[in-house]
Design a protein around this nucleic acid. Structure first.
Lengths: 208, 208
DNA sequence: GGGTGCTTGTGAATGTTTTCACAACTTATT
DNA sequence: AATAAGTTGTGAAAACATTCACAAGCACCC
């Protein structure tokens, strides 16, 4: 299949949330215009996004809320469960461990690791923090799908190399530093400081 | 000035980090090629990004590390201090309160608020969590520049309306829900669940 | 069963971002 | 002073993403 733009996939995730809202409200159909006004985009954009994956709607009527939600979940790979481990049990790691939105989407936290003896053994939302020396063995035995990096910036790149050598293919990095992953590994970064800088830029430009 | 693409500004933030690394290493000049290989982009991209804001380099030599870093800090609005408050003192709010990377960039946390009596009065990284009923008064007196939203999803939109009515122009939202801001307000969202879904999509497509 | 109103799906047009490619300029060298 | 090596800045081209605009299709009603 042709390469789909990240912006399209990002919107697909939003559509899914709106569909789930609609379902909770007991509504059975939704139009591209409804989705667009919820998400602040145009209806043409919604239809074009969906058209990359097929034709799911009914002309004159719109989309079946259930059918479209199911199809988007399939596209995004959310019909399965993903095994996730967190490395770093500081404040950010702890926040991730108890983050409800992950579990609701099928991301199951199966392990948390740290190097600090003061953190090892502590329970974070029901999961005991393990010694990071057990990480390699656990990567072999548990074979998680995704690793969340929540360690200090300087420890992030070595950790990335360690987990990719162990066969991990998906990494979400929360350390505020750009990382380089080998090809075949999908790396995304959530950089909160950078987001704040973007805000700073926009506020500064708006004032000038 | 012409509208600058968000992707360009995002890269500018990255360049600034690389420049700071270079400065720490005592290097005085850097080429677009150096910046590009650090950030995984092309040298033409780097030069084009910078060209939107002027000509800062010397042909044959490259860019002065100090001068370029200073200029990017100016562009991003990082030469001043920003007063930031956090609403929501749960795990995410607490993680944000102690996040070192904010302070290093001139974002100063001047208040944290929550509605939960169990959290009010607690010190988070030196700042005492205040009762959210004091928020409106403090917005008037402290006049912070930026609000970080770290409340549950269902409380996020009402809170956004409350702070924008009080004159807040910049908001960074961490609740996993799309928000709608009035025009004139800059809203950005960090949606960790959505990032994981993007990862899920890429991993799923790569397998197929 | 035909008409009306609404909504999709999609080529074409437009707008935006990235990449290319090279003249122009700087420094270093002989 | 002339040459060589290196790097910027930038128009033009290419690639990519969004918006337009409308034929096609479906549901509902009379």
């Amino acid at each position: 299949m042709k390469q789909i733009a990240e912006s399209t996939v990002r919107r697909l995730s939003l559509y899914l949330r709106f569909l789930e809202d609609y379902r909770r409200q007991g509504l059975e159909t939704i139009s591209s215009g409804d989705l667009a006004s919820l998400g602040g985009m145009t209806s043409a954009q919604v239809r074009k996004d969906l058209s990359f994956f097929g034709s799911f709607g009914t002309r004159g009527l719109g989309y079946s809320v259930n059918a479209l939600a199911h199809r988007i979940r399939e596209i995004l790979g959310l019909e399965r469960e993903w095994q996730v481990i967190i490395v770093g049990a500081g404040k950010i790691g702890a926040a991730l461990a108890q983050y409800r939105a992950f579990g609701e989407r099928g991301f199951r936290i199966v392990g948390i690791y740290d190097v600090d003896p003061a953190r090892i053994g502590v329970s974070l939302d029901g999961t005991i923090v393990k010694d990071q020396r057990e990480l390699d063995a656990d990567l072999q035995s548990v074979k998680p799908d995704i690793v969340l990096i929540a360690v200090p910036a300087e420890a992030a790149q070595p950790l990335l190399e360690r987990v990719t050598k162990a066969g991990i293919r998906g990494v979400l990095n929360f350390a505020p530093t750009p990382l380089h992953a080998p090809s075949g590994v999908t790396l995304r970064s959530v950089d909160m400081a950078l987001e704040l800088e973007l805000l700073s830029y926009t506020l500064t430009s708006a004032m000038a």
